[in-house]
Amino acid sequence: MLSYRHAFHAGNFADCLKHTLLLQLLDGLNRKDKPWLALDTHAGAGLYELGAAQAQKTGEYRDGIARLWSRADLEPELAAYVAAVRSENPDGRLSRYPGSPALIRQRLRDRDRLIACELHPGDQPSLKALFAADRRIAVHKRDGYEAAGAFLPPPERRGLLFVDPAYELAGEFERLLKLVGQVHRRWREGTVAIWYPILDRAPSERFCRALAASGVPALLRIELGLAPYDTPLGMKGSGVIVCNPPYQLDVAARRWLAQLQGILSDSGSGETRVEWLTTA
């Protein structure tokens, strides 16, 4: 049963992390002229109205993108992220938030492609309508894990697998571990980015230890925490595992993550982490 709707969480602190990183990964691909494919396994609705009932019910964007919206002192990577959100709000007011497929569309060139997968019956029609006129984008009502097996490696050979599950079901980390191994065996030149929540440290630590022991090279862990992870109420941190990241992504992330944590954390007790689980 699919119940997760990103409309309740669009633009929150986790999105600030994952989408700043996403844009860096896409900009890395665009440093070369050769075309690439992005496969977004859990694409959502694509674009979210922050004035809608879902976003207003939680108000999570107010402690995320809204805190960055008017700042003029942002690190270049954070400024690029805010500029990407601004491009979906031409009147200058923060009223819409682009999800990962909309951000990927902004970076697509003529020969690049996006495959966006979404199963939720409430979100998939919106996603399909959003990209109906763009020949570079294909929308599939299809399980994202299954799609990775079907579409990778792509003819372009270069590209990004972006995995942002809802973590509704037991065994999600195990599925992700299997996915990383499968993709590495078939598509070693591709980049994989996997987002995960941190409600307490243990589940993500087990996942990262298993990845480190898997033998897959060039695995980078990037985390943002706004409070101690074992604080009892709600998600206090999240992270992204990047397999085969672009050159010096770790160096840039250490710089802008520190600023992002300072802007978003009220308690001052959070932390950031940038470390290699395995080397190249």
Rank of each mutant, 00 (worst) to 15 (best):
P76A: 08
D73C: 04
E77T: 00
A84P: 06
S70H: 15
R67N: 02
R93Q: 15
P76T: 00
W69A: 05
D91Y: 07
A80R: 13
L74F: 00
E75W: 00
D73A: 03
A84V: 10
E77C: 01
R86P: 06
L78K: 02
A66S: 14
P90C: 12
S70V: 07
A83H: 09
A83L: 07
W69I: 10
D91V: 10
D91G: 12
W69M: 09
S70M: 10
E75A: 10
D73T: 08
D73Y: 05
R71E: 04
G92N: 13
L68N: 07
N89D: 11
S70K: 13
N89C: 12
D73L: 06
S87T: 11
W69V: 11
R93E: 15
R86C: 09
R93L: 12
I65F: 03
R93I: 09
V85K: 04
P76G: 03
A66G: 09
L68M: 09
G92M: 15
V85Y: 01
S70N: 13
D91I: 10
A66D: 08
S70L: 12
S87I: 05
A79L: 05
S87D: 11
D91P: 11
P76E: 02
E88I: 09
R93V: 11
R67S: 02
V85M: 09
L94P: 05
S70E: 14
L74E: 01
A80V: 03
D91K: 15
A80S: 14
N89W: 07
L74V: 01
V85I: 13
N89F: 09
P76Y: 00
R93H: 14
A66N: 08
P90F: 10
D73I: 10
